[in-house]
Design a protein around this nucleic acid. Sequence first.
DNA 1: GCCAACGTTGGC
DNA 2: GCCAACGTTGGC
Length: 154
Amino acid sequence: MRYWLFKSEPGCFSFQDLQNCPDATEHWDGVRNFQARNFLRDEIAVGDRVLFYHSSIPQPVVVGLCRVVRAGYPDHTALDPGSEHFDPKATPDKPIWYMVDVRAEQALPQPVPLEVIREHPSLRQMPLINRSRLSIQPLSELEFETILQLGGVS
DNA sequence: GCCAACGTTGGC
DNA sequence: GCCAACGTTGGC
């Protein structure tokens, strides 16, 4: 099992939005970055655990805990001319872009702010610190468990 | 709103 | 294949 951090702007799609979906489950679509795509297509597996991060707000925070419920499959929004994520280079044979499905498990009792992550000695290597733009980030088990602990998950 | 980081594009 | 120009992201 592996550990990940998924970023989202809450004004676009928040952890609460995910919790409000049927079965608290939704597609994680619209990712248009090749490194993140490779994680979605090749490495993220059913059962993997995911931290949900809110970016581009006054105090960015890790807010929730999710589980991967479907591994990578073609992101059909790339084929839809009406979608804001439409990519004219994508075809059914060569979809280019991939998505997974995630289910919200619980909100962190105490959301963990970026400034706390930045200060914590065990979290110095997290991509959030030096690769903040990557929207799908792999975490070590220690990093994942440390954030759960900071977030008050027992 | 600014700016640094960084990914993508396109000319050569 | 290099690299400058440009666009986007995201923290502050």
